[in-house]
Nucleic acid binder design. Structure first.
Length: 200
DNA sequence: CCGAGGATCATCT
DNA sequence: GATGATCCTCGGT
C-alpha cells in the first residue's frame, strides 16, 4: 500500500465525482507554526467545460496549477484579500478542480483561533477564505501535491447524508448543482434552501 | 436572523 | 478599467 489516498481509491478522475467523494476526509496542513486539520464538510466542483471554472479560458500565469495532474493543489487569490484552495482533478491539462468550501476543525484549534482573531468556533472555518486564513494557506503551496506536499488528505468521518445544491458566490453557470455538503453539519458555510437531492 | 455595501488588488480585457 | 469560486460590519426587523 503506497499511501492512504491509493488505499481508498479516492476517485479524482472527475471534479463532479471527486467533490462528494472528498466529504468527510480529513484535510491536514503542516505549517511552520504547527499542524492544523479538519474534516471536509463542503465542496464545489468546477468542471472543464464550465464557464465558471478558472480553467475554462485556458492557461494563464495565475491558473497554471489547475492544468497539472490530479492531486495538485491550486490556490488563488481573490477580492484583493482572500485565498481559496482547490484540489485538481481529471487528466493533466483538462483544467478542472474541486474547491474546498468548509471544514470542521479537528486539530490545531488554538492556532486557528489566534489566526482568526479569536472568533467563535463556528466562525473559524465555515467558508473557503476563512479556512485558508485559519490554516494559513496561501500561494506558497500552490502547485504542491496532496500525495507528498504540506497539504494532505487522511481518513476522517463517514458522511451520513450528503446534500447537493447550486453553487454560490459565482455569476456564471449558477444553475449547475455542483455544491456538496454534509447534511446537518454546523460548519457548512451556507445551508441551501434549494436542495436538489440527497445521496448517501 | 437577514440583506446591503465596503474593503482591496491580482488578473484579465 | 472592470471584475471577482469572499468576508465583515452595520442597520433593520
Amino acid at each position: 500500500m503506497e499511501n492512504y489516498l491509493d488505499s481508498i481509491g479516492l476517485d479524482l478522475s472527475d471534479a463532479v465525482k471527486a467533490a462528494p467523494a472528498l466529504l468527510g476526509h480529513k484535510l491536514i496542513f503542516k505549517s511552520p507554526e504547527g499542524v492544523t486539520s479538519g474534516y471536509i464538510v463542503e465542496t464545489e466542483a468546477y468542471h472543464s467545460d464550465d464557464p465558471a471554472s478558472h480553467g475554462f479560458l485556458g492557461l494563464t500565469k495565475r491558473n497554471n496549477s489547475i492544468f497539472q495532474k490530479h492531486g495538485t493543489v491550486y490556490v488563488y487569490f481573490t477580492y484583493g484579500m482572500h485565498f481559496c484552495v482547490n484540489i485538481v482533478t481529471g487528466e493533466a491539462g483538462s483544467g478542472q478542480a474541486v474547491l474546498i468550501r468548509a471544514i470542521e476543525p479537528v486539530a490545531g484549534i488554538e492556532l486557528m483561533m489566534q489566526r482568526r482573531k479569536h472568533r467563535k468556533l463556528k466562525d473559524l472555518t465555515n467558508g473557503p477564505a476563512k479556512l485558508t486564513q485559519a490554516m494559513d494557506i496561501n500561494k506558497d503551496i500552490d502547485g504542491t501535491n496532496i500525495y507528498d506536499g504540506p497539504l494532505t488528505i487522511a481518513p476522517g468521518i463517514k458522511p451520513q447524508e450528503i446534500t447537493i445544491a447550486p453553487r454560490i458566490g459565482i455569476s456564471k453557470a449558477k444553475d449547475h448543482p455542483w455544491r456538496f455538503y454534509i447534511e446537518g453539519n454546523e460548519f457548512v458555510s451556507k445551508v441551501s434552501l434549494e436542495k436538489i437531492k440527497k445521496i448517501l
